[in-house]
Design a protein around this nucleic acid. Sequence first.
DNA 1: CGACATTCTTACCAAACGGTACAGAAATGC
DNA 2: GCATTTCTGTACCGTTTGGTAAGAATGTCG
Lengths: 197, 197
Amino acid sequence: MAMGRPRAFCTDTALNRALEVFWRKGYEGASLNELTEAMGINKPSLYAAFGNKEDLFRKALDRYTKEKVAYISEALDAPTARGVAERLLFGAADMLTDPSHPVGCLVTKGAMTCGDEAQSVRDQIEHLKADYETRMHARLEQAKQDGQLPADADVVQLTQFLTTFIQGMSHQVVHGATRAQLHKVAEMALLAWPARP
Amino acid sequence: MAMGRPRAFCTDTALNRALEVFWRKGYEGASLNELTEAMGINKPSLYAAFGNKEDLFRKALDRYTKEKVAYISEALDAPTARGVAERLLFGAADMLTDPSHPVGCLVTKGAMTCGDEAQSVRDQIEHLKADYETRMHARLEQAKQDGQLPADADVVQLTQFLTTFIQGMSHQVVHGATRAQLHKVAEMALLAWPARP
DNA sequence: CGACATTCTTACCAAACGGTACAGAAATGC
DNA sequence: GCATTTCTGTACCGTTTGGTAAGAATGTCG
């Protein structure tokens, strides 16, 4: 079978470019023109390679979670409940302000800038959030069983506290908060964390 | 001078309707069709009465801050620093989940769903945020002078902690958090608040 | 070399966007 | 009753959106 000329672009780097655009502008804010220009291809190629704007976003989101939000999984590996909380908050602060990629959180931005039409995108983001929360909850529950948290600790509340704060930081950084500032407020948030019993 | 027939609609309620649409869908998410339909007028009337989509949003935002975000000003009137923090967090939790209007925060949503083109909208939101932060900062600084906060309290940090948390709650509520849940995490956040010296 | 598969380019589509021109309807002043 | 002034309804403008169809260009294999 005859093969056409090899891809003039690398699908992998093209997806990274797309991720960056989505990250900067959100789902609806990123137009196909911007995307194709950044990816170095044109619309029919994009359509052939990725199928759809929604599909493209989903793939970009996939890569985002696997490569950029790895800090959450690492944080959950911390040996103590407090360690988990610390790593989550500081890890988020560092990731959100990493100068090697756009500021803020793709999930946060994407969820906000996705209208009613792209329900599947919204669903995937919701699913993602739920998954992270489930894992955080399970990890803290285990820590509680291990005696690392007070017997009357409300694990749901602790989880929600962390996610609330992380999302707040994700918003702050869009409005210009620096890494140092995030670290300070994260430190303050940890004052609310229950002491080992 | 001859007068045409009186307005068939009340500008005041029309603006309220517009506010509600913006509140639900964000700035870019709200199309002129939705707006005019909700307001009960058509596009030329809207243009004549409010000038512009940007102008309309600005006026809606004005009303929003004067009527819906009044809790911030009330909170700043609390007699103690802790009272200010409590009223801010619980006031935000209550406002964000008030069933009489769309969930979440117009400023938060609007800032996210406003692309590069509507720079003036973005500017106004930024200005609004800065204004609130300045007032919160000033109030806490005064509380510190009054001896309600430790002498080494970092007022900037305290302010940023509160805004971070409030924005986090504003995000949580969009994803289905209930008022009771927000109250619980707000209570937890207050554990980080410095004790009176 | 020549036939083929595959990619890229150009141009286009229908729909929706924000915004407006224009003519008709309604109400007041004379 | 008439003219004037205002407001409304329709229909439209140019642009941009996401998404495609068809031809030109380029590679590999026989």
